[in-house]
Design a protein around this nucleic acid. Structure first.
Length: 474
RNA sequence: GGCCCCAUCGUCUAGCGGUCUAGGACAGUGGGUUUUCAAUCCAUCAACCGGGGUUCGAGUCCCCGUGGGGCCGCCA
């Protein structure tokens, strides 16, 4: 059997986004599952919009996500001569021709056709130009493009996800395949490359489905074989339209920077439009490779649900070894203060089950590394107690805590003595709430025993005294 | 407007003619645990777009309608 070859073919015209990442993932999963090859092809024929910066972004983030390709990156801009050869061939055969129609004129025609309820298509004005006329205009450097002389027929292709799809190419007309011999356009270069790179399966977004008949027509004209197509459902925003820049920054880099884990993103993306057929929700890349099947890909578009991504991310954070979590959290705490790794590990462990994304560590645990807590004194108040009562509570806490020997300072001991005292009083919150606020400066945080343990005796007492000094002893 | 694609809880989805009084997950709500937050456990809310067929029987097959989306570039 012929070896399966898929390709991921992004254009480096902007940040690598989640939609592209999912397309890349599905190509990877399919190829890997079938023991095939994934080719990375950079579609940078648009010289104005493409940039090496975005190419780098694609490559780096694919790597970060763990999506490996076996061939490439192959840059289309390095293959201009190849396309030129085929372009000349088509021109020679009369399957393509130069078109000198001004863009404004064509735009006006399109508008008119649409308003008349017709399919907008090129009328073929320049198709009948004589060789001499063409040569003359070319010599005069009249603006021109190269059009494909498209056959008018019904194209039927089998889509692995959608079944049989039919198009009437008579509605499309002669489309532009190159700006000039050295500037091929998407539909043209894609056909050449998929054939030359022996791509067996073209797996891409549904937004390309209407390009497919054009590409098939070109394949037929060039005598190239037709790959098998699979058009993936789109990833949608909340408003159910295609996820795009309009909806804000959905780049992979953004999610990476916010502290989403690659495992979580992969897992989330895979389940957006695909499922294993049972109730399992958690999959590693390796497991996905094993379970993946193109038949189980959904037909309808799927809304990108951030809450679900957060849940999956939190799940992976909770499963992570502490040392690794601490390491990953470090960048988000830079600039907060001095951070001993030992302390960082303890802090990471304490907040592991509280994090939805790594970046949250800075607002949730910054108080460990700074003395500047800056909370309003009202925050120290528990229930209806007066300031002087709360001051008394803090005094009690300070006293109880001071009795603990330095070497006995741990959360178990703290809990033991403080809880004992709190139970004597009868209202645990009366002692523990102000203590916790004094230590953290936050309404919501990890528990006071754990925090005091990590902070150490000296800092703990210091912060309690500081809190007490804020209160009116009246 | 033309062409194409699609249609089960708010969202992601299971379901491939009878086991569906439609299952799971996220979110929401209520509760247990608890000094706050989180985690966790339990419970709860919530859907087959409409109409015709086919069939003994339809969420599942067919048709029409409706709705949504994609494309209609000298972008990809």
């Amino acid at each position: 059997m012929e070896k399966i070859r898929t390709r991921f073919a992004p254009s480096p015209t902007g940040p690598f986004h989640m939609g592209s990442a999912r397309t890349a993932l599905f190509n990877y999963l399919f190829a890997k599952k079938e023991n095939g090859v994934l080719v990375l092809r950079i579609e940078d024929t648009d010289k104005e919009r493409s940039s090496p910066e975005w190419e780098k972004d694609i490559i780096e983030n694919l790597k970060w996500l763990g999506i490996e390709y076996q061939e490439g990156p192959i840059r289309q801009s390095d293959r201009i001569q190849v396309y030129k050869k085929h372009l000349e061939q088509l021109l020679e055969q009369g399957r393509a021709y130069y078109c000198f129609c001004p863009q404004e004129e064509l735009e006006a025609q399109r508008q008119e056709q649409m308003s008349r309820g017709e399919a907008p298509k090129y009328k073929g004005t320049c198709k009948t130009l004589s060789k001499e006329e063409v040569q003359k205009k070319l010599a005069e450097k009249t603006d021109s493009v190269i059009r494909f002389s498209a056959e008018s027929k019904t194209i039927t292709f089998k889509d692995l996800i959608r079944g049989e799809v039919k198009f009437d190419t008579g509605l499309t007309g002669d489309f532009v395949i190159a700006k000039d011999l050295s500037s091929p356009l998407y539909n043209f270069s894609v056909v050449i490359d998929d054939a030359e790179m022996q791509i067996t399966h073209v797996i891409r977004g549904e937004d390309h489905i209407s390009n497919t008949p054009k590409q098939i027509l070109l394949q037929e004209a060039l005598g190239l074989s037709r790959p098998i197509y699979a058009h993936l459902p789109l990833i949608l925003a909340e408003d159910r339209t295609k996820l795009s820049k309009r909806h804000g920054d959905n780049s992979v880099a953004r999610f990476k920077n916010e502290g989403y884990l690659s495992e979580a993103i992969i897992n989330f993306l895979a389940l957006l439009g695909w499922n294993p057929g049972d109730n399992r929700e958690i999959f590693s890349l390796e497991e996905l490779v094993k379970e993946f099947s193109i038949e189980r890909i959904q037909k309808a578009g799927a809304v990108f649900n951030l809450k679900r991504l957060e849940w999956i991310n939190g799940f992976y954070i909770r499963k992570m070894p502490i040392e690794k979590l601490a390491e990953l959290c470090l960048p988000y705490l830079k600039g907060v203060g001095d951070i001993p790794f030992q302390t960082l590990q303890e802090v990471a462990a304490l907040h592991q089950e509280r994090l939805k994304k790594l970046s949250e560590i800075s607002e949730i645990a910054d108080f460990f590394f700074t003395e500047n807590l800056g909370y309003p004194k009202e925050m120290l108040l528990w229930k209806d107690y007066k300031e002087k009562d709360i001051a008394k509570a803090l005094e009690t806490v300070a006293a109880v805590v001071s009795d603990i020997k330095e070497k006995e300072w741990n959360r178990k001991k703290l809990e033991e003595v403080l809880l004992k005292k709190a139970e004597e009083i009868g209202d645990k919150g009366y002692l523990l709430w102000p203590m916790r606020v004094a230590l953290t400066g936050k309404k919501a945080s990890a528990g006071p025993f754990e925090v005091a343990d990590i902070l150490g005796k000296e800092k703990t007492i210091e912060r309690i005294e500081k809190a007490k000094s804020l209160l009116d002893l009246g």
